[in-house]
Amino acid sequence: MITRRDLLKYAITGIAGLAVPTAAIQVLSSKKIFAGKGNVSNVRWIFLVNTYKCVGCGLCVKACKKENEIPYDANVTRTWIERYVITKDGKVFADSPHGGRDGFIMSKIYLGKGRYQDIKEEDISKAFFVPKLCNQCDNPPCVQVCPVGATYQTADGVVLVDRTWCIGCAYCIMACPYGARFFHPVYKVAEKCNFCYHRINKGLKPACVSACPFSAREIGNIQNSNDPIAKIIKTERVRVLKPEFGTNPMVYYIGLDKEVR
């Protein structure tokens, strides 16, 4: 039979005992937790892709893979090019063999598993190339799901992966609505485009931007009112991919069609 005195004694020690580990795990002020995005940086990187200018040569993909040490023959890439061919009867064909690393050297559309689709020239109603890369979203879902704090957003808006901290659980790869993330075959961690963070911080342009002979890819700083790319984004008609996801992407497109997903 337990007495009232004993019940109170055990309850108090029990609660105190439980409180010790909870309190010691992390002392976080609520201000910090709810502060959210107090962005004080005067740099916010943005990207502009002009699909009218892109010819699908894939020199961006080639340069990206070499610059960022992504195994060249592995079928993974930080940036890739998609080809869209829309026929007059409304069918949409899209492919991206090797992510467009070797360009598009065939008029046939690759359907996967060694099958190709031939499309007659007179059947094409429109066809174009769409380069894709990480959108460095303002609300990155990939960062929210990381259970260990290995992926994060810097003050200038770029989402990075800490290779020493990543445990390779691949939640972030699942969470990205754009399929921009992949598993690095050498480091065995999550990998993604980071706008060539090492280059943009040295005053260079990302490898893909410099490699593009047609200026289809451009980088700018939206916080700088004199930036020519920021001006285009603010004054011209641009669109982002999948706005309905609420991710607020920082990669803007000129000439995006409704078939592009």
């Binding site: 976080l28 910090k32 937790i33 709810f34 502060a35 959210g36 995005k37 107090g38 962005n39 004080v40 940086s41 609300n139 990155p140 960062v143 929210q144 704090g149 290995a150 992926t151 994060y152 957003q153 810097t154 003050a155 990075l160 800490d162 020493t164 901290w165």
Partner: peptide, 14 residues
């Protein structure tokens, strides 16, 4: 860090 708890919980030196 700068982007708050949801997006900025990481190792700064990375």
């Amino acid at each position: 860090h700068e982007r708050g708890y949801m997006y900025g919980f990481y190792r700064k030196s990375n």
